[in-house]
């Protein structure tokens, strides 16, 4: 269970004149998927950090299952842009890290992490260092960490931005497949319209800095590519993004 609610949330960094993001309001129901889309610097990552409990809003309220979020939750998996793998830990140690931090005995944590790695086809590289893996494999290790901890909320911050086009499509498929199978709530930050429409049942469109909510678009075509519906929706979303961009002086 994990319903994520942002209620008129605004955040301002220390010493900043203007708000980094907000006010933003949306709800991601249990097991649903939201994509956050917007130009660079519009506060997409800030929103994710607020959802992870790493930042606390000055205005508004972030809650999960009705309870206001004040600290990071053990059942939230936060996948960073570089996947958040620690280079001094092996693949297995990285996958088990959430469980170790949660206080599980090492043997039990490693057993569950091994199962998660095997599920993602990474059992052969369990003892490898992250630097020895490709970008796609690192992404799968980060997903294995989420699976091992039985996360009910996956927050992914541009998780595919470091991948080439082919690997990126495979990784999108994997993200979608795991979300369908595991049933966790998912929030994915991206600056690709196509990726947002492939992964998000709803797409939150943000305007340029300071990030403000432009639209919350329902996407019935989640999990599909290049269909008439996705092409049309992509055109609409692009129009929203362009409309939110400041006009150049003539």
């Amino acid at each position: 269970m994990s319903e994520l609610v942002f209620d008129a949330v605004a955040y301002r960094y220390d010493n900043a004149d203007a708000a980094a993001v907000g006010p933003v309001s949306f709800t991601v129901g249990t097991g649903r998927s939201l994509a956050i889309l917007g130009p660079s610097g519009c506060g997409k990552s800030t929103l994710l950090q607020l959802a992870a409990g790493l930042l606390h809003p000055q205005d508004g309220r972030v809650s999960i299952d009705g309870a206001e979020l004040s600290t990071p939750r053990k059942n939230t998996a936060y996948m960073l842009q570089n996947y958040g793998l620690l280079p001094w830990k092996t693949v297995l140690e990285n996958a088990a890290l959430g469980l170790i931090i949660a206080g599980q005995p090492r043997i039990q944590a490693y057993r569950r992490a091994t199962e998660a790695l095997a599920r993602l086809g990474l059992d052969a590289v369990a003892q490898a260092w992250p630097r020895e893996l490709s970008g796609g494999m690192r992404q799968r290790v980060a997903l294995a960490r989420a699976l091992a901890t039985d996360a009910d909320l996956l927050l992914a911050d541009e998780p595919l931005s470091a991948l080439d086009a082919l690997a990126r499509e495979d990784a999108q498929d994997l993200l979608l497949q795991l979300w369908c199978e595991e049933g966790y709530t998912q929030v994915v930050v991206t600056h690709s319209v196509e990726e947002a429409l492939f992964l998000g049942q709803r797409v939150l469109v943000l305007g340029p800095a300071p990030g403000r909510q432009v639209a919350l678009v329902d996407n019935p075509a989640v999990g599909t590519r290049d269909t008439t519906a996705t092409v049309e929706l992509a055109r609409d979303v692009r129009a929203l993004l362009k409309g939110a961009a400041p006009e150049c002086a003539a």
């Binding site: 960073l80 958040g84 620690l86 890290l97």
Partner: peptide
């Protein structure tokens, strides 16, 4: 990113020191 990675998992100050600060 390394610090955020363990903090998002709910790591305490001591756990952050052990898993990130010292090895880094």
């Amino acid at each position: 990113q390394y610090l955020m990675s363990v903090r998002s998992l709910g790591a305490s100050r001591m756990q952050t020191a052990r898993h990130v600060v010292v090895p880094a």
